[in-house]
Every structure is written in C-alpha cells, then in structure tokens.
Design a protein around this nucleic acid. Structure first.
Lengths: 157, 157
DNA sequence: CACAATATTCAGTACATACTGAAGTTTATA
DNA sequence: TATAAACTTCAGTATGTACTGAATATTGTG
C-alpha cells in the first residue's frame, strides 16, 4: 500500500541521516543501506532500489560498490538472470563494527611508538598511555563480544 | 635537538594520518591533535603549534575550535597573559569515544522504530534486530568500561 | 587611553565529493 | 551470432571542504 511505502521511506530517511552523519557514508549510499535494512523482500535489484529511494541507476553502481567494500551489503546473482540482487545480512553491522575496531589496533601501535619516542617520564607519556589503554580495552572487549544473536529471532526460547 | 624534533614530526604525521582516515578529522586538526599528544610541554600556544606543524595561524583558530567542540582539546588561559594554551587531557580519547558511543544510542531508537514498522514477522525484522543487538551490546559494554588508569603503570616497554 | 601581542573572522582559491545523463560493456537467451 | 536487458564507466556540473593572507577584534600592560 502507498501509505506503508511512505512510512517506510520516512524511516529510511531517518536511518540514512544517521549513517551519513555518524558513519560518514555518502547520502545515496546511506539511503540504499537504510532501504535494504527494512525493505521487503530483503533481496532487491539495483532498479528496485533506485526507484524506491529516487536515485539514478548510475549512482547505484557507485553506491553499491562502496557498500559492498565496506562490508554492509552482499551481492547475489540468480542462475539464468542478468539481474544482480543486493541485501544486507543479519550480521552486517556486527561485521562492519568489528572490522572498524580491528582497524583501531593500528593506533595502539602508534601510541606505543609514541611512548618510546617520548621517553620514560610518566608525566610526559600520560596522554599517550591513556589513549593506548582505551584502544587496548576496546580491542579486548570486542574480542569477547557475543556473536550474532539469532535466538531472539528464530526461536523465542 | 633538531633530530628529536624531526622524529617527533614523523610520528605526528603518522598519528595524524590515523585521525584523518579513521576519525574524519581534517588534516590540520589531525596534526594539531597528534602534536598535542606528544609535545613537551603538553600545554602549548597556538603560535607554537602552528610553527611546529607548519600551518597558518588562521587555520589554527578553526582547528582548535573543532578539536575543542569534539572534546579532544582543552583551552586554558594564564593570569596576566593574552596567550591561550591548549592541551589534550589524559582522558581525552576516552571521553571522545564515550561520547561517540552515546551518540549511537540514537540508532537503537531507530532500529526499534523500524521493527515496529516492519511488523512482527521475524524473518522480516531479522536485519533490524541484529543491528539493534549490536548497538545495545556496545552501549552496555562501554557503560562498564574501566575509567582512566592513572594509578600504576601496567606494562612498560 | 594608547600600545603591542595575540586571537578571530572574512573573502578568495584550490581541491575534492556526489550525483547525473549518455555512451559503452557485459550477460543470458534464442 | 543477434538481441534485449541489465550493469558500468565517463565527462560534466554543482556543491562542499580546507586552507591561507589580510583585515578586524580582543586582551593585558604601562
């Protein structure tokens, strides 16, 4: 129904705004991601997506590649069809966040190198050590993060 | 010594690159932040910083405001001086990250609204619920994160 | 108040990003 | 191989961002 579609698009705009602001995702890619999080069916073609969010198909090519590279979206083809279908997996956000936190490990190395450079005076290295500790904690915390919780969705236990 | 300064600046460039890439901080602000993490003394004037990283003082005004708004840097004045002194606190990164995670709470509300919109079919809301769970976990994990560890130095290199 | 030292704002430039229409390329059938 | 329906690339435009020098405002001292 058209009314449902309108509400869905309002939600898409809201969720896209979040992705754009907090995750530095370009506007159209943000809309695509948001749309793919709530659309039905979950797998959709570029044409369907472009039509839904009101963007050109050319933009879709770039946006889809970006979202795929970022780990948000997966592309599937069906035998005997030229159309590609895109979807966000249930564990997309978890995967993306894990990847991002893993990238933060680089900063631990940088702070370690910095402390070595700055010498042994604790007053001088306090800033670096504190930063180091934070990223170290994050890394450990995420290592022990529970995996995807399908329980709530599949069986209600 | 000039040699030390050179090494410090190499480190600054490295740390700045990280802030620029992973934290979407503009180049000069990234250098300022990196410099303030390792400079001695920790409190420095805009003039000193500009000279150290080779940027104009005009840029410093904008960059400092950005870093202060983001919570990275604190500005102090000394009685009887027109100069402002800037520094990063030991707990700067922790504060910034906490603030960022708090911002993610907004997404929990969005996913919740999305699930309501999408109806009660678990197959349809799986994507949303999984995302919801991730952000929920993050929020709780950070709530229990240990505070700044000023007490004793844990490991030393 | 006048002066000097610092800080901020402003206009302009250079560069990068996001998007689109049109042209070109791939893919699956017959 | 021809064809039709999809996908991708490209050139161009519009918009936004980062930075600077020059001008203006603020701050503390004598």
């Amino acid at each position: 129904m058209a009314e449902d579609r309108k509400r869905l698009l309002e939600w898409v705009e809201r969720a896209a705004a979040f992705c754009i602001d907090e995750y530095a995702v370009p506007p159209i890619a943000g809309r695509v991601l948001a749309w793919l999080m709530i659309c039905d069916p979950p797998e959709q073609s570029a044409g369907q997506i472009a039509e839904a969010i009101g963007a050109s198909r050319a933009s879709l090519a770039t946006s889809m590649r970006l979202l795929i590279d970022a780990g948000f979206v997966r592309r599937r083809t069906r035998p005997g069809q030229k159309t590609h279908y895109y979807q966000v997996d249930d564990d997309a956000w978890e995967r993306v966040i894990r990847r991002r936190v893993a990238g933060l490990a680089a900063f631990r190395e940088i702070t370690a190198a910095g402390m070595e450079l700055a010498g042994s005076d604790p007053a001088r290295t306090g800033r670096l050590r504190a930063a180091h500790n934070v990223f170290d904690w994050m890394d450990k915390a995420f290592a022990s993060m529970p995996g995807p919780q399908h329980e709530g969705e599949v069986d209600e236990r």
